[in-house]
């Protein structure tokens, strides 16, 4: 459990780096990194199918998508980046204190969350659930992918007749 906790903290650090870094390319790489850490965590939590899917789709496909988009723009100069970083340091100096305070307060209050799982005997295989039990979801997700692709083909044309 401790290892999982450490990995989750790493996940948050990776996502923070993704959000805070100034360069878009690094940000896209950060997203891929976040996704890889997420994959490791998913493996550790006994969900190999989801993990493999996450790795191939999120860190593979989506990073390629982002990097090819970012190659359209030119990067920011080095001085500008430094200036922005300094400005941010001075702007957000209180943030660690706030997080520490909130954590301490939450550990004192103890919100009564109650996660108890009812036992389930019937179906135990992810593949069976995905392909047979939740057929309508499967159809839905295929159609969603289709409509996403279709939407992209709509975007890359001139809409109005001249």
């Amino acid at each position: 459990m401790t290892v999982n906790l450490i990995i989750l903290v790493c996940l948050i650090l990776a996502s923070l780096w993704t959000v805070m870094t100034r360069s878009l390319l690094r940000s896209a790489l950060g997203l891929a990194l976040t996704s890889i850490v997420l994959t490791i965590l998913m493996f550790r939590l006994n969900s190999p199918l989801a993990a493999v899917f996450e790795l191939s789709v999120c860190s593979g496909l989506i990073s390629v998508l982002f990097i090819s988009t970012i190659s359209l723009t030119e990067p920011m100069s080095r001085q500008e980046t430094l200036k922005h970083m300094k400005a941010r340091m001075t702007r957000f100096w209180y943030l660690p204190l706030v997080i520490a305070g909130a954590g301490a307060a939450l550990s004192l209050i103890k919100i009564p969350l109650d996660f108890r799982f009812a036992p389930r005997e019937t179906i135990h295989d992810v593949r069976q659930i995905l392909w047979q039990v939740r057929q309508l979801d499967l159809i839905g997700q295929i159609i969603i992918l289709l409509s996403g692709v279709f939407g992209v083909t709509i975007l890359f044309r001139e809409g109005r007749k001249k």
């Binding site: 409509s147 996403g148 809409g159």
Partner: peptide, 16 residues
């Protein structure tokens, strides 16, 4: 989500 994604694309149909 299916309805929403189609709606996003349809709003952009004119591509102005």
């Amino acid at each position: 989500e299916l309805a929403s994604i189609s709606a996003y694309a349809l709003v952009a149909f004119g591509t102005e």
